[in-house]
Design a binder for these strands. Structure first.
Lengths: 278, 278
DNA sequence: TTGCTCCTCACGTCACGTGAGGTGGC
DNA sequence: TTGCTCCTCACGTCACGTGAGGTGGC
């Protein structure tokens, strides 16, 4: 009737049902997003509490719908939608990177499980034992989750060797990493990087100096490429099984011993041990 | 004390705390699994209600833990653990296939969103209009989700053309698919496969015979490879936007028109239209 | 007036996490 | 006797789904 009205006025308002089907969001979801302030109707009738949505709210609604299909939490969606185009793209990329990493972790767990179920008696591991002499060691340790470990180990070894050299003390050509529990993507544990040395060294805020007692260990020698799941999990399983069968108790944290030059060793060469002290 | 006892007897029982750390399952989770019958303690003290777990329950507990890391629902874990080794492996593969498909779907949604956020003004689509004459059509239709569509379209076209030929009637060399709503991986909609013909045809239980009225349509011509997300979503967006800008109402279901020989058309050739009747 | 849509609780789902308040074994 | 662990509720979390019971606009 009123031709002077802007075309985006009242006549573009719609009830929740229509907005719901057009945005692919359930009415229950729309009421929740209203309550959370994530997507508030353009107008709410104070008498009836009816929600009226404007046509130009559809874009935001559809974005939310697609982001929810990615299972992004509502809080994170709210933050992302605060950003400008290119920044929102960056935020989405960050989120998606996390999803991809978690997916890859799961994929390797599936491979491991497949082998467990198939009872393919897994690459037969050759378990040996040895006597390990007492050592003085310099260590850096911190609780962490699996994704951090890959960075932490080489960085810490470099720090330790640098410090040892700077103090004019002699480091031995071997390192090991002690795990005080299982480190996975969603459960952290103490990870301790150890470099043995001879001589006298002062501890620092970061670096502890310890004495590791002599002990026996059961160990498996592995190729460099086997440092990933599923192989490494089977290796741990195998040593733990051997320990149990032979009635041995774990007396120190289980460990990975890096006795080769990690960087220059080819993938298919033996490069490290998994060891259980007893 | 009693040397004749089996080694797996009482002395291998442990309290919930120890079983919890060894299995990487929270005590709260263990109590839930007990209540659900998914993992019941070997022994429960009737006086104190203390739960005692046996060492040989650790294997099942660890399997549950890993399957939960894959976010498999407890019900499905329970079913899987009922199966023998190789069968369990098959069940895991089935589950994982579903996860991979859902992940790939999400990945293409991310690509689409990236382009939306970057406002790369997307491959400029050339929107045209045309008048479509009335047609008699034979159709097969069913509600379905996105993963089924890829099979359903060619199968239905083949069925329709076979039936039309068997009745000695002449089919026209073009097909289209009408979508009565958005079809995604988790929302279904009616999908109707249409083959126009001249002559007289009897409907069957499966095949309906209809009359499509003459109308105008706005359409975009696309290359064969663009039939996937994200391109196809941008194309739909573009036509919908054009319709709105030009004040046109959608009067029939939006559709994809296959006017080329789909199988023998190379990926980078124009092969189909997306059309909105108005 | 009759339907239909909309409204607001309230409770259910899934797999737990997080206390509160109480008991039991060394 | 003192801690410590264990127990059972009960409620919270996340993002909704599913009614129950009631109101409002055509």
């Amino acid at each position: 009737m009123n031709e002077t009205r802007s075309p985006d006025s009242q006549n573009d308002l719609m009830l929740i049902r229509e907005f719901s089907t057009r945005s692919r969001l359930s009415s229950k979801a729309l009421r929740l997003y209203d309550a959370l302030g994530l997507l508030e109707p353009a107008f709410v009738d104070p008498q009836s509490n009816y929600r009226y949505y404007a046509a130009d709210q559809l874009e935001r609604a559809q974005l939310i719908s697609v982001l929810r299909q990615l299972e992004m939490p509502l809080q994170r969606i709210a933050e992302l939608l605060e950003l400008e185009g290119a920044m929102a793209a960056r935020a989405l990329e960050t989120y998606w990177r996390e999803v991809e990493i978690s997916h890859r972790d799961k994929r390797s767990l599936v491979q491991y499980l497949e082998q467990v179920f198939e009872e393919k008696e897994i690459p037969v591991f050759d378990i040996q034992t040895r006597q390990v002499p007492a050592e003085k060691i310099a260590t850096i340790s911190r609780r962490m989750f699996l994704p951090e470990v890959g960075q932490f180990i080489p960085a810490s070894i470099a720090r330790l060797r640098q410090y040892i050299a700077a103090q004019g003390v002699e480091a031995k050509p071997i390192d090991w990493v002690i795990y005080d529990g299982q480190v996975t993507a969603d459960s952290d544990a103490l990870v301790e990087i150890c470099v043995p040395f001879t001589g006298t060294l002062e501890p620092t805020a970061e670096i502890a100096v310890k004495f590791e007692p002599a002990h026996n260990e059961a160990f498996i020698r592995l190729e460099k490429r086997q440092c990933f799941t599923p192989d490494i999990m089977h290796a741990y399983d195998a040593v733990a099984k051997w320990m149990k069968q032979n009635g041995h108790q774990l007396i120190l944290g289980c460990r990975e011993v890096y006795w080769a030059d990690w960087v220059n060793t080819p993938d298919d060469q033996l490069a490290f041990d998994i060891a259980y002290p007893f």
